[in-house]
Amino acid sequence: MTRFTAPGVATLVLDSEGLSRWIERDRRTAALIEAARRAGARLVISANTVLEVAHPKVDRPRLRWLLSQVKVEPVSQDGAHKASALLIRAGMHGHQHALDATVVEAALRQTHPVVVLTSDPGDIDRLSDHQVRTIPV
């Protein structure tokens, strides 16, 4: 069993790889999410993450069910401006990192401490200026 290694974490944010692995029933990811829930953490994703995981072979019923289990944070005009500012501060280009920036922007709005389950821990660390913790998937 995977131990959730972030005691006191209030919020667990999933990026697209975290959500994809949860959809695919990856054991490690499922164990991390379950441990976070047992620890009382809220589960959150950015609305853009839904777009990122969409493809013809995704299990749509499972995706809908999983989305009912999490808080889906909208990407507003203000949020887009804040995500853009994160990109600029980090010296990163929107074309390659825009969706990561919206994940970080949503994460920064959550009750801290926040952990992001991600395939891009370096990018998330850089965009968040290490204000959130990352767990690589």
Rank of each mutant, 00 (worst) to 15 (best):
V75F: 04
A101P: 08
S84F: 12
R21Q: 11
S84R: 15
E24V: 00
A83S: 14
G122R: 08
L12G: 06
G91W: 08
A30H: 10
D129W: 05
G122Q: 09
Q131T: 00
R60F: 10
L86G: 02
K82N: 03
M92Q: 07
W65T: 03
I23M: 12
T29D: 00
R62D: 09
S68A: 15
T11S: 06
L86N: 03
A80K: 08
S84L: 15
R64K: 12
M92P: 00
Q131N: 09
A54W: 11
V103F: 05
A80N: 06
T134E: 07
G91C: 02
A41C: 08
L12V: 02
H81S: 09
V72S: 13
F4H: 07
R3C: 00
L14R: 08
S76P: 15
V103C: 05
S46G: 12
A39K: 00
D15N: 03
P121W: 06
D125Y: 06
D100M: 02
A107I: 00
S46Q: 11
I45G: 05
V75M: 01
L51R: 14
I88G: 01
A10P: 04
A90T: 03
L19T: 06
S128M: 06
D59L: 09
A47R: 13
T102M: 09
V9E: 06
D26S: 02
H95E: 08
E17N: 11
H93T: 12
T118V: 10
T118C: 10
P56D: 09
A83H: 09
R25V: 03
L86H: 14
P121D: 11
I33K: 00
E105V: 08
R37L: 15
V9A: 13
V115W: 12
L127S: 12
V72L: 13
A41Y: 06
